[in-house]
């Protein structure tokens, strides 16, 4: 028998997680029920987060976006403001699972399950997201990259919860999320690539690339900003950024492609993601329209 506790407030939830050893937070359930069914986990107590309305919703204050941990992926996917200001985030939400899964799954659940191929971390990483963590000893805020410890593992202490994700979305920033899959829908990323580009006029001021599925954790590729900044769009340098990203990757070989293959795909998708992000930044892309998932569109001029 698996016991279920239903807290009405965040404080209650934290108390339950602290008091009951082995208690697992239950958000949308798409991972928790699956893991229980397949025997990957065997919790004795579930703490249902679905009544914590304070953890649900998208808020935009100036350039700062805040998304509650219990916000559904479907809500993120369909938020027009997010699509306009941080396109990569809903673009990633849009390709996660099916509509049904997106209705159920939450942002917090997607981050805390810490699957290397998860869709939501790369776009949030290129937006410089931080996570608000609530715990028995109060709250703390960490960069999103610091949340991930390895496949299926986070740096959360026992009893801690992710409460919200925050990131800046200035109007001179464009972002994009692309992925390689076997099927064109209902698939996990074999490679996930997010890019953001900030501009001043047509000049790039900074650029960031983050990758999923090619390392034990999602990560930001170092050095891309130095390579791309201070100049207008340069396809050569975007290609170089792709090679840098491939070199920074350490994928495994499995039924969904070899390590070498995944590195090739990184090298191919990074310039495309940068190009689309750049176009979005300079206003050269229809606002809110998502890219084809592999980003195969004509090069920006």
């Amino acid at each position: 028998m698996v016991e279920v506790l239903i807290p009405g407030t965040l404080a209650e939830a934290l108390g339950m997680l602290a008091d009951r050893e082995g208690a697992v937070p239950l958000a949308g359930g798409t991972d928790v029920l699956l893991d229980m069914r397949t025997g990957r986990s065997d919790p004795t107590v579930l703490v249902d987060m679905s009544r914590l309305d304070g953890l649900r919703g998208v808020g935009i204050d100036g350039d700062l976006v805040t998304i509650g941990a219990m916000t559904s992926i479907r809500t993120i996917e369909r938020d027009a403001e997010l699509a306009a200001r941080s396109t990569a985030v809903p673009e990633a939400a849009h390709v996660l699972g099916s509509v049904q899964i997106r209705v159920m799954a939450t942002l917090g659940g997607n981050l805390c399950h810490a699957t290397p191929s998860a869709e939501m971390p790369p776009p949030l990483l290129v937006h410089g997201a931080e996570v608000d963590i609530a715990g028995p000893d109060g709250g703390r805020t960490v960069p999103l990259a610091d949340l991930f410890a390895g496949p299926g593992a986070t740096t959360l202490d026992p009893g801690e919860l992710v409460a919200a994700v925050r990131y800046p979305a200035p109007s001179n920033l464009g972002s994009c999320y692309l992925r390689q899959t076997v099927r064109w829908s209902m698939d996990l990323a074999g490679v996930g690539v997010a890019a953001s580009v900030a501009v001043d006029g047509d000049r790039i001021t900074t650029a960031t690339v983050a990758l999923g599925a090619v390392a034990p954790t999602p990560f930001v590729v170092g050095g891309v900003a130095d390579l791309m900044a201070d100049d207008p769009w340069d396809p050569e340098r975007a290609g170089e950024a792709g090679r840098m990203a491939a070199a920074a990757s350490s994928p495994i070989s499995d039924a969904r492609g070899s390590a070498d293959y995944r590195c090739s795909v990184v090298a191919a998708l990074v310039p495309r993601a940068l190009g689309i992000a750049y176009r979005r930044a300079i206003g050269g892309w229809p606002v809110g329209r998502f890219s084809p998932t592999n980003g195969l569109v004509e090069e920006p001029a």
């Binding site: 239950l26 798409t30 699956l34 069914r37 397949t38 249902d48 679905s50 049904q100 209705v103 159920m104």
Partner: peptide
């Protein structure tokens, strides 16, 4: 499938579609 991959068990909860195989009754 019981893994959320086929959609055969789709029902509406509060008018939204969910795969009932992965929806916890407790919620």
């Amino acid at each position: 499938c019981l893994t959320g991959d086929c959609g055969a068990c789709t029902v509406l909860v509060n008018s939204e579609p969910v795969v009932s195989c992965l929806k916890a009754c407790a919620q």
